[in-house]
């Protein structure tokens, strides 16, 4: 399988993947290269290999998730790992156990890989300090969501052939978005030009210091953009707290063909999902088979997560031996 052929030039000297912050271009490229192979593998009838045979992967989700959790579960299973899902519903965290206690308890079960999502920024990092295995951040508060940024990068790279020099407009609720933060870090590291487009109330403080151009006006922010990345606007932020109403938000910040017309004619439309049709994105635009790569992002998600689990497992004790 192609995924296992070109392993010699892979660089990833980290025990955990806690964020994009701190990763070198070569390390990001290593994951993407490896993921390319897994895309091929996932399109075959036999989608499994045995890279993680005998390994135990625990998906620990303190925050509800359907697509990310199932994507990680599938990724682990296709690599031959034993995968266990723990979600907050049946976890003792509900009974008042602290995060650190949960971590030490799980650690005693000797997992090899721990995939963690938590509603608090920095929580995955805190947990990683208390366990002996590799930890993958599946989203912590509004801090980072590294595998989302990696799958977005893979999607872009496969479509456009490169990341460097592309104009990427990230639009919508930047303030509360870990997806935006990880994407900004990754795209900047890989030499893309990042723009943020959002109403002032949905931009984080000092956003312009993140190495991006900041716009409030979609028409200016999308001009000549190669990639238009839309973000989800949470329901509780729609009615008066951050923006006055859905219809006003849609009028100024919802992606429709009119606003898209200033972007590059071959601009791709992305969304990390789940979408609010008619809020941040027009339904027809979201489903446009020529422009929208939203479903492709989901496919890339599994491949990228396989690549991440694979590459981390090589640094585990007895890793890389099969």
């Amino acid at each position: 399988m192609s995924a296992q052929t070109s392993t010699t030039d892979l660089t990833f000297p980290h025990r955990h993947l806690l964020g994009i912050d701190g990763l070198l271009p070569q390390e990001i490229k290593s994951i993407l290269d490896l993921a390319d192979g897994y895309v091929d593998q996932n399109r075959q009838a036999n989608k499994k290999n045995s890279v993680l045979r005998g390994r135990t992967q625990i998906n620990l989700f303190f925050e509800a998730s359907t697509r990310t959790q199932s994507s990680f579960e599938l990724a682990g299973k296709r690599l031959g790992a034993d995968v266990m899902n723990m979600s907050v519903k049946n976890s003792s965290i509900k009974k008042g156990e602290t995060l650190v206690d949960t971590a030490t308890t799980l650690n005693a079960m000797h997992p090899d890989l721990l995939v963690v999502r938590h509603a608090n920024s920095g929580a995955v990092e805190l947990l990683a300090r208390k366990v002996g295995c590799s930890v993958v951040n599946a989203g912590d508060g509004r801090h980072e969501h590294p595998t989302q940024a990696l799958l977005d990068a893979l999607t872009i790279r496969r479509r456009k052939g490169r990341l460097e020099g592309l104009i990427v407009a990230i639009c919508g609720d930047i303030m509360h978005s870990r997806v935006a933060r990880s994407n900004i870090l990754l795209l900047n590291t890989m030499g893309a030009r990042v723009r943020l487009v959002a109403p002032p109330t949905l931009l984080p403080a000092d956003a312009e210091r993140l190495g991006v151009e900041v716009f409030n006006d979609m028409e200016k922010g999308l001009e000549d953009a190669d990639i238009v990345m839309m973000l989800r606007l949470q329901l509780e932020r729609m009615n008066g707290s951050f923006v006055p109403s859905v219809r006003e938000y849609y009028r100024y910040f919802g992606l429709d063909y009119d606003k898209l017309s200033v972007a590059h004619p071959e601009a791709l439309i992305m969304h990390p999902g789940p979408m609010n049709r008619g809020v941040e994105i027009d339904s027809a635009v979201a489903d446009d088979i020529n422009r929208s790569v939203i479903r492709e992002q989901v496919e890339m998600g599994v491949a990228v997560r396989m690549a991440v689990l694979d590459i981390l497992s090589r640094n585990l004790p007895d890793g890389g031996v099969s």
Partner: peptide, 15 residues
Amino acid sequence: TEGELATRLGLQGIP
């Protein structure tokens, strides 16, 4: 405190 660091850490700032 509100600012670049809070933004990077994904923490809610206090202006």
